[in-house]
């Protein structure tokens, strides 16, 4: 038995299913919810919310700024060229490069964090019915114990409109 899940027509019954799984002793991190839109109106839509993305974005900005700083100072100093009476390392124009590199670093770090933390997840439980508006609530890698699975199925079947599947 690798997975058991239910499809629910609306957020309310999905919430009930999540609550049922919790009552059956499943930890939040083992509950899989899949929906075709963010379900922020419901409690289960707020699971697993904490993220370090802001910090990674800031870190990326710092890395970008350092790269920009290195780029302008090293290249200007390593081959000093005199132009228009400006100093070799001119700070006013360099600030522009630093700004753009900072922002580029922050943007790229955000994307990398997003890809790593959201797209490279291990879960595979999915049902195309989700695209039609159904909400999937289930447990992946459920215990092999027959009684435990029956218990889960019962919990998933309880909310109105549920269609439970097991594989």
């Amino acid at each position: 038995m690798s997975a058991v899940y239910g499809l629910y027509p609306d957020g309310r019954s999905a919430q009930e299913a999540v609550n049922g799984l919790r009552a059956a002793g499943i930890a939040d991190r083992d509950i899989v919810v899949v929906s075709s839109q963010p379900m922020e109106d419901y409690e289960f839509g707020h699971m697993d919310k904490s993220t370090g993305m802001w910090w990674f974005a800031c870190l990326g900005g710092v890395v970008g700024m350092s790269a920009g700083y290195g780029l302008v100072t090293v290249t200007e100093a390593s081959w000093p060229m005199r132009v228009g009476g400006l100093p070799t390392v001119a700070w006013w124009p360099n600030l522009i490069i630093l700004f753009e590199m900072t922002m580029l670093g922050a943007i790229l770090a955000t994307i990398v964090t997003f890809v790593v933390s959201a797209l490279l997840s291990r879960g595979r439980l999915y049902d195309p019915a989700v695209a039609d508006g159904a909400i999937l609530v289930g447990v992946e890698n459920a215990a092999d114990d027959w009684a435990a699975v029956a218990n889960l199925t019962r919990a998933l079947r309880a909310p109105p409109g549920a269609r439970v599947k097991a594989l």
Partner: peptide, 9 residues
């Protein structure tokens, strides 16, 4: 897939 984690991220 559309897990809450993905939506939040």
């Amino acid at each position: 897939r559309g897990t809450p984690r993905q939506w939040h991220r």
